[in-house]
């Protein structure tokens, strides 16, 4: 990319960002809406500073990050196992893949009441929400990836009498790396939504809890500050995953 062009790109982004911020500020000072619904940029900036300096934010962020990480670990591991099995076995695929496929887009929050009963109101039910959210995209993507493995690779490995475990780790996993990252990418997104939704509904800690707390105290600037932080965090994680999957 020519440097002059890069500069125009940066300028366009800056202009768009300024436009959005100006529009927000204009709306805030117009008095069209109830005063605190759209607080001015200065108040949001101040709230951002307060939030970032408060230890409570980091404590709650740790809780959410922990839930999220455990959910991703369990969900993606289960997804990989199920995906490998469905992809490698024609029989299993015909028997169960349809069900996995149709369950995948179902909004998982409907299971939350059940998860609450099974795992309680603590971290475990949020982890469970994230886990089932993350599981489906990973499983489907890995299964499709396995079917895309060139059959000649599989024949070569069979001729070397590889065990199923060796087949999985030496042939299938490297070959489905792209598919796995793709599924994880989607899985990250839906797991984040799952964990945060669950926290927002019923919890005593976590970012979702903080947002609800701010909302109930009608601390709108504080709420927006939290939303911004979460959006940037998730976007950051997302970009990192994209970068890894492309390298």
């Amino acid at each position: 990319m020519a440097p002059a062009y890069a500069l125009t790109v940066r300028r366009s982004r800056l202009a768009a960002a300024l436009l959005i911020l100006t529009a927000w500020q204009a709306l805030a000072s117009s008095g069209l809406l109830f005063r605190d619904v759209v607080p001015s940029l200065w108040r949001i900036a101040a709230a951002l500073a307060t939030t970032l300096t408060a230890p409570a934010f980091y404590a709650n962020l740790r809780v959410t990050a922990f839930e999220f990480a455990v959910a991703i670990a369990i969900g993606s591991m289960a997804g990989v196992l199920v995906g490998l099995a469905l992809g490698a076995s024609h029989f299993l695929s015909r028997a169960y893949e349809r069900w996995v496929h149709y369950l995948a887009p179902v909004p998982k929050i409907i299971f939350f009441p059940v998860l609450l009963l099974a795992f309680g109101a603590g971290l475990e039910s949020k982890i469970a929400m994230g886990t089932i959210s993350c599981f489906f995209p990973v499983a489907i993507s890995v299964a499709a990836g396995v079917r895309g493995v060139p059959p000649v690779l599989i024949r070569v490995d069979r001729s070397f009498r590889a065990t199923p475990w060796q087949m999985a780790t030496k042939i299938y996993l490297p070959a489905v790396r792209a598919a796995l990252l793709n599924g994880l990418h989607l899985g990250f997104g839906v797991a984040a939504i799952g964990v945060l939704l669950a926290e927002t509904k019923l919890s005593k800690a976590g970012i979702g809890f903080l947002v609800m707390d701010a909302y109930h105290r009608f601390d709108m600037p504080g709420m927006y500050a939290l939303l911004l932080l979460v959006v940037f965090l998730v976007a950051g994680v997302n970009m990192a995953v994209t970068r890894i999957s492309r390298s």
């Binding site: 790109v9 979460v230 959006v231 998730v234």
Partner: peptide, 17 residues
């Protein structure tokens, strides 16, 4: 060039919050 990445980031944002 300027905004495709923004849209992709938007897609991943947990807007429900």
């Amino acid at each position: 060039r300027a905004f495709e990445a923004w849209v992709a980031a938007w897609a991943a944002a947990p807007l429900v919050l």
